[in-house]
Simulated scan of single mutants.
Amino acid sequence: MSEYPVWVNGVPESFLPVSDRGLAYGDGLFETVRVAGGKPTLADYHWRRLQRSCHQLGIAVDIERLLEEVDAFLLDNRAGDGVLKVMITRGSGGRGYNPEGCLSSRRILSLHPLPSRSRDPGVHGARVKLCQMRLGRSALAGLKHLNRLEQVLARSEWQGDAYDEGLLCDFAGNLVEGTMSNLFVVTHEGALVTPDLSFHGVAGVCRDFIMEFARHRGMAVKVQSVPRGLDVAEVFLCNSVNGVWPVIEYEGREWEIGPLTVQIRDCVLEEFNA
């Protein structure tokens, strides 16, 4: 039995058939949603991305039914603050890559406590290393699909608390993302820059929220290559659980937590607490 609440297709269950294609091939996707006061945060961003990803992978999902199950799951488990993981797999099918015969997708919900670093997000800065793992080009760039082996191998490059996060480059040597986060930098001219994820990485919902917030306030926002040397004024990471995480040390260089990072951090915190 699972040590945390799990529902499969709308009922309490902690087992999956070995024929599930999510297990066999990583054939599915997931969302990791911060829950505050029993409610999903950045919910519209998560559900829009989930629907886009399902469409791109050709996985049918009844979004209204899923959201009803999410509400019932959080209510039934008296969720306060925590992390909701939503997985959609193509379902069960025969051996082999051909998905023909998968009659219905599978919806898996689980509830977890907030990581300690997420309970007071943005207060403490992150010490970050450059990972040796490199991200290759992918036709599935941007999707949060179930095959995350690149991130698993990158995260295995350090143990203990020497670092809080690791950054990954592409094979051209440009920074793409963290093992569990998206990257933003603030240039010396004050522009907000995030790496282009057209060919690698996961397009996070917190990243989308931050870019939308910044543009609505007239900030210069650029999506472009970010060299790993990071000759910039401010650096921060983000994801939908931790919020904004200021980088204070990377490859022997230290940064102060800058004013634009603070402004964006506070906006995300307000959204979490809305």
Rank of each mutant, 00 (worst) to 15 (best):
S198W: 04
E157C: 05
T187R: 01
F15K: 06
E212M: 03
Y45P: 14
K144H: 08
H46N: 04
L230Q: 08
R119W: 01
L66V: 07
D81C: 14
S2T: 01
S104V: 14
P227Y: 15
F213Q: 11
D208T: 12
V35Q: 00
V33K: 00
P99Y: 06
F171R: 04
T41S: 09
V83M: 11
V152F: 08
R48T: 13
K85S: 06
D208C: 05
E150G: 10
A203S: 08
D27K: 15
V205G: 08
G125R: 07
A220R: 13
F236R: 14
L42I: 01
S156C: 12
G91Q: 05
E165V: 05
Q224E: 05
M133D: 06
H112C: 02
T32E: 06
R48I: 13
E165G: 08
N77V: 01
L237S: 13
L149P: 10
A203H: 09
F209L: 04
Q56V: 09
L57H: 03
G229S: 15
G91W: 01
R217T: 12
Y45S: 04
N242E: 07
L183V: 05
L168I: 11
T194S: 11
H55Y: 14
G93Q: 10
V241A: 04
L140F: 11
G94K: 10
E3R: 04
D208I: 09
V232H: 11
V70E: 02
V205N: 10
Q56F: 12
S19I: 06
R265I: 10
L75T: 06
A36E: 10
Y25A: 12
G26K: 09
M1T: 11
V232S: 13
F236H: 10
V176P: 00
P40S: 09
G160H: 07
E189K: 09
E13C: 00
K129E: 12
I63D: 07
G38S: 05
L146S: 10
C206T: 03
E165L: 07
G252D: 08
C267P: 12
R137W: 13
V18Y: 02
R119T: 06
S110P: 04
V193W: 05
Q151N: 15
Y97R: 04
V193C: 04
G82R: 00
R107N: 00
H188L: 05
L74C: 04
R265Y: 09
C102W: 02
G37C: 13
